[in-house]
Design a protein around this nucleic acid. Structure first.
Lengths: 245, 245
DNA sequence: GCCAGCCATCTGGCATGCCAGATACAATAT
DNA sequence: ATATTGTATCTGGCATGCCAGATGGCTGGC
């Protein structure tokens, strides 16, 4: 088995054997859920195994497994013999997600501070400098850059598990962010906070970086706590009837 | 529909319709994995859908769904057409889990400190006073009480999401804890740390409680980083052969 | 007109069967 | 004897079918 053979060998990837229908279905459904602004939709959003299996062109089995995964990730909820519905996070749940996020990212910042490289600082700065103190009108782009900023800090912490844990948290909050961002000049204040965080990281000040990240994110939690009632509000005809029963 | 009827009504639960074979299978397999000390076992531990379905007396479908859940929770790993195996966490992964745990519990301590009740402090004290500075010989019981202590702090933080996230982390570390606990007098030092943490909580000192919890848990992380090589060690015949290929 | 009870139908849970990828072993050629 | 290749078999992926619980509308009795 000469790996340094005289004649060249084709360099091919191990090839991903179609990646499995389960994961494909899972991704497809997750994207569909993410793209639909679930907090605008009034009634409960139901998913039908048979419908999905027909639309995606596969049998019910991979669909069921995909839904099972999505249920664990908190995107859907299945009531036995009653159907599968897209979950709408309550205000309470959103606040909790933000608190968890704050805990993880602040720890990541603490771990990153002592050994952050100049290039990483520059990358962070680029993310905030792109919006020169005026993110109004570019809310969508800024929201994306904002997420990239926080993801970058978590990555810099060096704990891969944090990245995978926060992945779904960010997806869940996508819809929430879009709303809160426009309220109370949060976007502009956010930029100022980010600059402070970058400064603390550049100075390798772990305590300060940790505190700033925590206060910044917990500030969002407090904001949602105050103004996030729209999350619980959409108790409309269909759901109200069920609550009365 | 008089809900204040004169004659008393039986107060019965909505009844869990057999809880579903999927969850039952999931719990059964998870418990089996947890109870087996996977780090003592040398070779890779394989699970066979058909074998499990026969042993548990159900068909393969609920087994597959259960395994799918367990895979997401990080207990097993399934290689397409190659089989399902129990995962053995690497040292790196264990250290990361501890770091995440530290992040969450320290945040929980911070949130709990300002509003912790005397009764809760007493409950914590009871957990550490049960082992009067001498946990030697009661390692198993102390390990359990230790876990209860940390779970209690997380619960006191009031973020339910933290409790559910750390649930699986603690299960994963069960086997690791049993080993590290006996090394380096960690158990006794642990008790001292716990007393300090309780004092900080009782004094409603959020900053101090946060720091003590974080340093205590990150200390475990550092310890595993130093002495946890046994986690990666068991690369035996079967796996070695595969690595060479 | 109203309400209870019945039934058509919808929906997910589970069982089963087939298929293709992967592996191990043996047979064969060199 | 060794390397290669053919094959039996193991294992998970997927499709399909049946079943029971849940729902909602319809009908008959009051």
């Amino acid at each position: 088995m000469p790996d340094d053979a005289a004649y060249p060998r084709l360099r091919v990837e191990p090839l991903e054997v179609s990646i499995g229908l389960r994961k494909q279905a899972c991704d497809a459904i997750k994207r569909a859920i993410t793209e639909m602004d679930i907090y605008r939709h009034p009634g409960e959003i139901r998913l039908d195994e048979r419908q999905l299996s027909h639309d995606l062109g596969v049998s019910r089995t991979p669909i069921r497994e995909a839904l099972s995964v999505l249920e664990q990730e908190g995107f859907v909820r299945t009531m036995p013999r009653r159907g599968v519905t897209v979950v709408r996070k309550t205000k309470r749940e959103v606040v909790e997600m933000i608190a968890v996020w704050a805990a993880l990212e602040s720890m990541a910042a603490r771990l990153a501070a002592p050994r952050v490289a100049a290039a990483e600082v520059a990358a962070l700065r680029a993310l905030v400098d792109a919006f020169d103190d005026d993110p109004s009108g570019h809310i969508s782009e800024y929201s994306h850059a904002n997420m990239q900023f926080h993801k970058a800090i978590i990555r810099m912490g060096g704990i891969a598990l944090m990245a995978s844990l926060t992945e779904n948290l960010f997806i869940h909050m996508r819809a929430v962010r879009a709303v809160t961002m426009t309220q109370d000049n949060r976007a502009q204040r956010s930029i100022a906070d980010h600059r402070d965080i970058i400064a603390a990281l550049a100075a390798h000040d772990a305590d300060r970086a940790e505190r700033l990240v925590r206060e910044h994110t917990m500030g969002l939690a407090a904001h949602v706590e105050k103004f996030g009632d729209f999350l619980d509000a959409p108790v409309l005809a269909d759901e109200k009837r069920r609550m009365d029963a």
